[in-house]
Simulated assay, not measured.
Amino acid sequence: MRQGPTVRDIAAQAGVSIATVSRVLNEQEHVAPGTRELVQQAIDELGGRAPRRRPSRAGAVFVRCPYLLTDYFGLIVSSIAETLDLHGLQLVLNAGEAAQKTPVLSTLPTRTGIAGAIVVLPPEPAADLVALQANGFPLVVVDPREDVPRDIAAVSAAHFAGARSLTAHLTSLGHRRIGLLAGPDNWLASTARRAGHVSALADAGVLLESQLAIPGEPTVRFGFQAAQRLLGMRDRPTALVCFNDKVASGALTAAVQLGMRVPQDVSIGGFDDIDLAQATRPALTTVRQPLGEMGRIAVGLLVRILDRHRLDALHVELATELIVRSSTGPAPR
């Protein structure tokens, strides 16, 4: 039996992007009439039927979070699960670090009983997400690791503003030599938070010295090792800004082992405001991300896509909040 043209075939024939063909096939409104006509003409010229649109709300939602579901990820996935239940949608969960090695995104359009997907900090390249959406498969990305096109629905926290508020808090306390325990260089959140840090330093008339910024995996171990390195310098920083609360807890341990008092000798700040931030001694000053709301917004976006509603704001950034506790204080003289 002769198969109909693929989305890629139609895009090449019409001279438009795969994403544009996907929007036309899914009857989305924000496509110019002339462009819609070009795509339909290409379908007619190629013969056969266009790829069949997926029925609205047909099946479960595939949630991919290839990490251990503790703290940060656990809060997001729990919120997604609760909100899906409120909408009467079932959840198929793909989680755990071992799942990072399993290529599942390309298989989703052919899986029976799956209506759409929510992917959390996907390790796959952005091109894989673009290909999935181009196939007409509904998806939402939570906290994208890389830049994704504007027409792929995504929700994240305001990383730039959050990091800027933390560093501004430290400069207001007189700190000028501030170490940065950054996240991985190839993460979108790392880039945005570094930019926020640099912006706040610039407001205080300070440039970020390259030797004071150390990138690494967001773990307790990295925080401990990086803090030991920075706090062991002759002209050591008086404060440390950490990528997340786990990194900050490692930095706290390193400071104590070096015989330093927090915050009298060195101030330390984190990001996320997970339970760990209140369990450390002293309790961590940190930037609160609305993790539960991120999950709820992601489900809301996906439901609207499944119901074929028009989405004008496909990238949603949720406000963060600086939570000041006892791990930060005035710069030592």
Rank of each mutant, 00 (worst) to 15 (best):
M1R: 13
R2K: 14
R2H: 14
Q3Y: 09
G4R: 12
P5Y: 00
V7A: 12
R8C: 03
R8G: 06
A11Q: 06
G15Y: 05
S17P: 14
S22K: 08
R23W: 02
L25H: 09
N26H: 04
V31Q: 03
G34K: 14
V39M: 05
V39Q: 06
Q40N: 15
A42D: 01
L46D: 07
R49W: 04
R49H: 11
R49K: 14
P55Q: 15
G59D: 02
A60N: 10
F62I: 10
R64T: 05
Y67V: 09
D71G: 09
D71M: 08
L75V: 12
I80T: 11
I80Q: 11
A81K: 12
A81E: 15
A81F: 00
L84A: 06
H87S: 10
Q90V: 04
N94K: 11
E97H: 13
Q100R: 15
K101W: 07
T102N: 07
P103T: 07
P109N: 08
R111Q: 13
G113Q: 06
V119K: 00
V119M: 04
P123C: 04
E124G: 00
A126L: 03
L129H: 11
V130M: 05
V130I: 10
Q133K: 12
G136D: 02
G136A: 05
P138E: 00
V141C: 01
D143M: 12
P144I: 08
P144M: 02
R145P: 01
R150M: 07
D151A: 06
A154Y: 08
A157S: 15
H159M: 11
F160P: 07
A163L: 07
R164K: 15
S165Y: 09
L170C: 05
L170I: 07
S172F: 02
L180S: 10
G183Y: 03
P184H: 09
D185L: 06
L188T: 08
A192W: 00
H197T: 15
V198P: 00
S199N: 07
A202N: 14
D203F: 04
A204E: 03
L207M: 12
L208N: 05
E209I: 08
A213H: 05
I214E: 01
P218T: 12
V220Q: 10
V220S: 02
F224Y: 15
F224W: 10
Q228E: 14
G232P: 11
R236T: 11
R236D: 13
P237C: 04
A239G: 09
L240Q: 09
V241E: 00
C242N: 09
F243P: 09
A248M: 09
S249N: 11
G250N: 05
A255S: 12
Q257C: 06
G259L: 02
R261C: 07
R261G: 05
S267G: 11
S267K: 10
R281K: 12
P282Q: 13
A283K: 13
L284R: 12
T285S: 15
Q289H: 13
L291H: 08
E293M: 13
E293G: 03
I297Q: 13
R304S: 14
I305C: 02
L306Y: 01
D307S: 15
R308G: 00
D312W: 10
D312C: 07
H315F: 01
E317F: 11
T328R: 06
G329M: 03
P330M: 00
R333K: 09
R333H: 10
